[in-house]
């Protein structure tokens, strides 16, 4: 009875199928626990949270510097910047745009710095569906390797005011 005090000495080890289920569930919990450190060392997709504090205005300066020295074109009025393979790329999030458009080479690795100039934003790469959080005051560094070529829309997925759904950008990956 769940609504009455139990008889005295109610502490017993589980038996039968209950015991079997608890054992199975515990085993599964151990698998779940080990999967994450395994992937951390062996997997190719990890969010390590590498980040540095940065003043939003300082970050905006770095972004502009990056665009000035790596600009390779322009799309819809937004400059396209292509960092050297292995180099640093900067992406600035603000209400309600991403700046600049980034161009990467497939299979090359980049250190992508993302931060916000105003409030919290999200960084989602479509249609492959990768998502990261973007905070003002934090330079979030993703060491990223695009594995396919094409044009990838990026989208803010953290609510950031009335223009939230129109906050988009683009990453171009060339062969």
């Amino acid at each position: 009875m769940s609504i009455e005090s139990p008889a005295k000495n109610w502490l017993h080890a589980p038996t039968g199928t209950e015991r079997a289920w608890i054992g199975l569930a515990l085993l599964w919990c151990i698998v779940l626990t080990l999967a994450m450190p395994y992937w951390h060392f062996k997997g190719k997709q990890n969010s390590t949270g590498e980040a540095y504090t940065v003043e939003p205005t300082r970050f905006a300066d770095r972004v502009q510097q990056f665009v000035d020295s790596n600009k390779v074109g322009e799309v819809n009025g937004t400059p396209i910047a292509e960092p050297p393979p292995g180099g640093d790329a900067y992406l600035q999030a603000q209400m309600w745009r991403f700046y600049p458009v980034l161009q990467f080479k497939k299979g090359q690795t980049y250190r992508l710095h993302i931060s916000s100039l105003d409030i919290q934003h999200g960084f989602a790469v479509l249609p492959i569906n990768m998502n990261f959080q973007v905070l003002p005051g934090y330079d979030h560094v993703l060491t990223i390797t695009p594995t396919m070529a094409g044009e990838f829309p990026i989208l803010c997925n953290e609510f950031c005011g009335i223009g939230h759904h129109q906050m988009t950008g683009r990453i171009i990956v060339t062969e």
Partner: peptide, 9 residues
Amino acid sequence: EQINIIAHN
């Protein structure tokens, strides 16, 4: 931890 990359928000 890692699967959240394809789910967050």
